[in-house]
Structure formats: C-alpha cells, structure tokens
Design a protein around this nucleic acid. Structure first.
Length: 378
RNA sequence: GCGGAAUUGGUGAAGUGGUUAACACGCCGGAUUGUGGCUCCGGUAUGCGUGGGUUCGAUCCCCACAUUUCGCC
C-alpha cells in the first residue's frame, strides 16, 4: 500500500506544519527525522532498535544496493522490507548524490543521457541513468523513490547551475515516465543552488510534473553558509503545494532541523547521528560531546540523565569512552542509539511546539543552550 | 672474570659532524549535513644512557662509567 500524507496544521507564527503519514495501518507524525541506512542497514543497529527509538522512515541507497547485492537479489528476497526485516516505511535515494560525493575528486562524465563514473568498490565503469535509477528503485520496492538528479557543488556558478537545473528537470520527466511501482511514491527534487530564480524555475517545473512529494536538494554540499542554505529553502518552498510532503535532503544538524521546520519542511535525513557516533560524538542539547576527550575518562554519569534511550539508561560516559577509544563496536552502537533518539526526540518537541504555536521561541531557547557563548559572539 | 653488540619520545624505530631529529603506533585536540563504518586534519623528543674530551660546531668521533644483551670461562 502506498503511503498517505495528511496535512493537519500549519503554525500561526511560521510555516511549520504538522502532518500524519499513514502506512500499513500505522501512523507516523511529521515533521520527521529519517535515519540513514545506506546499505539496507542503519549502521550498527537492528530494526528492532530502530523501532524502539520511535524512528519512522529510514533511508536506503539505490547506488549502493545496485552494486551490492544487486536489485535483483533484493527483489528475489521479496523487496527491501523483507530483505532487511524492517516493516516501517523506507525511502531510497536515487544515487544522484553519490555521483557527487563518491566521485568528488575523480573522473565522472555527466551527459544528457546519464552519468559515467567508477564503482567505489572495484573501479569498474558504471553508467547510471534516470530511467535505470527508477527501475532499480521499483525493484527494491521502497515506499518512496527519489528522482535521479544532478547534485552540483553549491559554488558551481550560475551558468552551470542553470544548465544543470534544466537537465535535472528532463531527468525527472524521464524517470517519472518509467516509474511503475503502484505502491511507491515518487518525489521530484528542486535544485538551483542559492539563486532565487533557479530555485523558482526548478520548483515550478518540477511541481508541474506532479510528483507525490518534493525534495529540496543541493543544500548539504560543500561549505556553503547556513544562511545560504536557509535561503535556498525559502526560495523553493513558495512554489510547493501545501498538501504534499517536503523533504530537505541530507540535513540533520539540530538547529537546521528547527530552522527547516520553521520554513515548512516535513522530512529530513542525515548521516550525522550515526557517523558522529562512530567517531565518538554524542549529540546533546548543549552541543556535541566528544567522548574521546580525556575529561570523560572517569565521568560515571550518563550522556544525558533526562534521555530515555537505552545508552543513557544503562551506561556512563566513562564506559562509552572506553569502548570508543578501544574501537569496540558496542560504543558506536550505544552512541548511534543515543544520537538517533536525540534527533527523534527533538522532532517530538518540535511537533509539540507547532501544536502550541511556540516554535519560534523554542528555536531561540534551543540556540542559546546549544551554542552558548559561541553563538553570542557570532 | 674476559670478549663482542647495543643504549634516540609513551612504544617500535630511522638518521646525520652543521638550519626546525624521518616515519609508524599511542596519546591530546579538531572536523564530519541525500555515509567509501577502522575516515580526514592538526599537535605531540628544548633533546638522542651518564660524565668528560676532540672540534668553529656533536645525537653522530674519542675515553671512562652505567645499564641491557650475546658468547666464553
């Protein structure tokens, strides 16, 4: 069954929206943060643990699963849900971003037809097209498929970005034409860097094609400023229909989630909670905690005494620090659990504040706690 | 007791008579936004066993001593 999205409320003081996703008889509330499980697993976590965190949609990646084990194997297994034993909704990214990120400093050849680039596994030459990406996602049987887009660097320059936006529009059309899975939503992606007219063009033309939802892409690239990122959202949102999902791709810093919601975003994904975990960092409302720091060596308190996650209920900073510095995978697992729970809980708070029309003051208070003096001095 | 070899940071070690003593690990920081899980970037020996000597200059040459180690009695 296809996911259903119902918009429930828009905040008075901002564009923040509350919505409900209905899937297999269960309801999931938006705005929502989606953990990333590139290779059909949220790194270090079992599906049961993901559900215990009250996460909803998780991401998987077309590019990675195409290369290994191959979409036919997943299809033979009965699709992604049965293959990975996850009965919640799954979104697949199209592989467009991987062309940008995996082949960042390597040879790649972007043509009208598609993208030639090398496998990160064995260097083999690959050719991914908009049609192929959608066909793979049809077979993977995710619940939300993404259009294959070009994800150019933010600093690419107006002329290149314009060409790229127009090509991404043609690619979206080609992908939509071959999309066949009736149980799967298909999203279009708005590009256009930090240029208002390109974002407007991209958004309007994409919406004309009538997708099940719309993403704002190209915002997690390079080192653009937060202001530019927020502008890219602001330039895109006015053209998107109220009753469809809006997904800000790749964004997951706590403050960005709040700012995104304020601007009208419903869905976010980011590798940060799991990647930071593997590198020994815990997220908290007072900023990132680097558990590798010596000062936690004998700190026998939890990461956050008020957190209800498994890691905080049973383990101390000193123990997790020991696991991380000893390269024990249980440390990465505990921190992944905590960090995802932190973001999921943040979204719960955000939804409560939308309900009360108090999101803006929540944002201000959050920023003060999170950045402390650092933010004041900026 | 005799003879040989060795002695460089927390560790394993490279090295040269002449500016800032290589590299690796560890340690200490930092980074990380549609994930190339064990990643990236910094910092980390005011000193080369100790004491003398040679030299304009010694970690590098010489002497003595100490310690370690190997062989022989």
């Amino acid at each position: 069954m296809k996911l259903q999205f119902t918009l429930q409320k828009v905040e008075k003081h901002s564009k923040a929206r509350l919505g409900v996703l209905t899937y297999q008889g269960k309801e999931y509330e938006t705005p929502m943060f989606m953990p990333v499980g590139t290779q059909a697993t949220v790194k270090t976590l079992s599906p049961e643990e993901i559900k215990d965190l009250h996460a909803g949609i998780i991401l998987a990646n077309t590019y990675h699963l195409w290369l290994r084990p191959g979409e036919d194997i997943v299809s033979l297994a009965g699709g992604l849900h049965s293959f990975m034993n996850y009965d919640g909704p799954i979104l697949t990214d199209s592989g467009g971003y991987q062309v940008f990120s995996l082949a960042k400093n390597k040879k790649k050849d972007i043509t009208e037809e598609g993208v030639h680039f090398k496998s990160h596994i064995d260097g083999k030459s690959l050719f991914l097209t908009p049609e192929l990406s959608i066909q793979i996602q049809n077979k993977l049987d995710s619940d939300i498929a993404m259009s294959f887009d070009e994800c150019p660097p933010a600093k690419a320059g107006y002329d290149y970005l314009k060409k790229s936006v127009l090509r991404t529009l043609r690619w979206a059309q080609r992908g939509k034409a071959v999309h066949q899975n009736p149980n799967q939503m298909l999203f279009g992606i708005v590009q256009g860097g930090a240029y208002p007219d390109l974002r407007a063009l991209s958004a309007q033309k994409t919406v004309e094609m009538d997708f099940d939802g719309y993403s704002i892409g190209g915002v997690a690239n390079d080192h653009e400023s937060k202001e530019e990122m927020y502008q890219a959202i602001d330039y895109s949102i006015p053209y998107l229909p109220e009753d469809k999902l809006r997904y800000l791709m790749g964004i997951g810093e706590p403050i960005d989630l709040i700012e995104g919601v304020i601007r009208g975003i419903d869905l976010f994904d980011c590798v940060s909670p799991t990647r930071l975990a593997r590198h020994g960092h815990a997220m908290s409302k007072f900023g990132k905690i680097n558990l590798k720091n010596r000062k936690y060596q004998a700190d026998f308190t939890p990461i956050d005494a008020t957190c209800d996650c498994y890691a905080c209920k049973h383990y101390t900073k000193a123990y997790i620090r020991h696991l991380i510095t000893s390269s024990e995978t249980f440390g990465a697992r505990l921190l992944s659990i905590h960090n995802i729970r932190f973001l999921v809980h943040l979204m719960e708070e955000i939804r409560a504040h939308i309900q009360d029309d108090t999101l803006l003051s929540f944002r201000d208070e959050f920023v003060k706690n999170y950045y402390g003096d650092k933010y004041e001095s900026k």
